[in-house]
Computed example of a mutant assay.
Amino acid sequence: MTSIARSLRPAASRLLASSRSSQPCRACPFAARAFSASRAAHVKKYSKDHEWVELSADNKTAIVGISEYAANALGDVVYVELPTVPLEVAAGDSIGAVESVKSASDIISPITCKVTAVNSLLEEKPGSINNGPEDDSSAGGWVAKVEVPEAGVKDFEGLMDAETYKEFTEE
Rank of each mutant, 00 (worst) to 15 (best):
T61K: 02
G132N: 08
A37H: 08
K102I: 00
S100W: 14
K145C: 03
W142F: 03
G127V: 12
H42S: 05
S109L: 08
S67N: 13
S56A: 05
P86W: 12
V153Y: 05
A104D: 00
G75P: 01
A90L: 08
H50K: 14
K154H: 06
K45T: 05
P83R: 09
D155Q: 07
A97K: 09
V80G: 10
A162N: 04
P83H: 08
R33I: 15
S105K: 13
A57D: 06
E99K: 12
T112M: 12
S137P: 01
A57R: 01
F30H: 13
L82C: 06
W142V: 15
R26P: 00
E163D: 11
Y46S: 13
G152W: 09
L82Q: 05
P110H: 15
V148S: 04
V98R: 11
Y79L: 10
N59L: 04
A31G: 07
D76W: 02
N130I: 14
K60V: 02
L16V: 05
G65Y: 08
S100C: 11
C28Q: 10
E51K: 09
S67W: 09
T116V: 15
D49T: 15
A73N: 10
S56P: 07
V146T: 09
G65M: 07
L16R: 01
V118S: 11
E88P: 03
A97N: 07
D49M: 09
A34Q: 15
K102E: 02
I63A: 07
A57N: 04
I108L: 06
N119I: 06
K154I: 11
N130V: 15
